[in-house]
């Protein structure tokens, strides 16, 4: 019976009576969701590429932006931390496959153990990303924005390296207090004042003759152009504000689009990881309760597994295009 069906349908797998895709409904729908989500993420990453190609001569250098490593203060460690994050996520992907494999053998305890490891890995990853965001928002060196919207970063000619603004700025005695709505007209208030004012930075700059600025623009070797002292003074005459750290409007690293895409893409990916952790926790509890043991198969573990691997897959691309390329 079976042999005759096979020979008949060899010509036409879609003629009925066979399983041309050989996948359950849930798994198939998870795959279709993943395909559409992959297209969403490629849309985001490609638009990042569009903006980068549009500003190819002035894009921030990722090695100078992401330089932190936990417990190593002031050490220039580009990329090590994201590499570690990548490894953590790939490892949690591995524990997920091991959970799926244990599910195929109906081994409840091993499924639960590997699911737990996956959840821990995912949580560590989300925490690391939050820490990365914190460093990015806080900033490190600080910079000055000039009238045409460009960012000027300060550079010490004598030592041949960048210098943080709080190292040379001269603090003035005139302290202006933040205007809160409880001291004047109730609807007038302002956001937190910058810790260092433009005047303080400019006084410090004029006092130290070795200081100059770096432009956003890159030279042919991909380094930012360092101006001479005279050119720097001319540029700085149109300075409008001090920029420290990053937000959606401006950032000390250069083009505002860089921070916008960073927040949006890593944020969207982080949201995926977060929902993946929640889904994993739900499945983990179900495994512990024995829901799938009663059902006789662990297909649900396989479905969330697919989602979890997809999140890992997206991170591989985000890592390449934000940190390496």
């Amino acid at each position: 019976m079976q042999a005759s069906t096979l020979t008949k349908t060899k010509q036409n797998s879609w003629g009925g009576g066979t399983k041309p895709l050989d996948a359950g409904y849930g798994k198939l729908m998870m795959w279709f969701f993943i395909v559409s989500d992959a297209l969403t993420f490629s849309g985001f990453l490609v638009s990042y590429g569009f903006s980068r190609f549009k500003n190819i001569d002035s894009w921030p250098i990722a090695d100078e932006v992401f330089t932190h490593f936990p417990f190593l203060h002031g050490v220039d460690a580009p990329m090590y931390y994201v590499a570690l994050m990548t490894f953590i996520l790939i490892f949690s992907s591995v524990t997920m496959v091991l959970a799926v494999d244990a599910g195929h053998h109906n081994d409840k305890n091993r499924v639960a153990f590997y699911m737990l490891l996956t959840i821990i890995g995912g949580a560590i990853f989300v925490g690391s990303q939050a820490w990365e965001w914190k460093n990015f928002i806080k900033g490190e060196y600080g910079a000055v924005e000039i009238q045409n919207g460009q960012i000027l970063q300060f550079y010490d000619l004598e030592e041949g390296k960048r210098i943080p603004i709080d190292e040379f700025a001269v603090s003035s005695t005139q302290a202006r207090v933040t205007h809160d709505d409880n001291v004047g007209i109730w609807y007038q208030s302002e956001s937190k004042l910058p810790e260092i004012t433009l005047d303080e930075v400019m006084t410090g700059f004029n006092n130290d003759i070795d200081l100059t600025v770096r432009l956003e623009t890159l030279d042919e070797n991909g380094h930012k152009i360092i101006l001479s002292r005279e050119q720097a003074e001319i540029k700085l005459a149109s300075a409008t504000r001090v920029v420290k750290g990053a937000n959606l409007i401006r950032n000390e690293y250069g083009n505002p689009l860089f921070a916008d895409f960073f927040f949006f893409i890593t944020g969207f990916h982080g949201f995926h990881v977060f929902s993946g952790v929640i889904l994993n926790i739900i499945i983990f509890i179900n495994v512990l309760l024995g829901t799938y043991e009663k059902r006789g198969h662990y297909d649900m573990v396989e479905k969330v597994g697919l989602y979890w691997h997809f999140v890992d897959l997206v991170w591989v691309f985000v890592f390449t295009f934000f940190y390496l390329v």
């Binding site: 797998s13 895709l21 050989d22 996948a23 795959w31 997920m96 496959v97 691997h309 997809f310 897959l313």
Partner: peptide
């Protein structure tokens, strides 16, 4: 990406149609 999808997501074991 190939090895993640093919081995972790078991695409290697799926039918060609899928």
């Amino acid at each position: 990406a190939y090895y993640i999808t093919w081995d972790f997501m078991h695409v290697r074991d799926e039918k060609p149609f899928l």
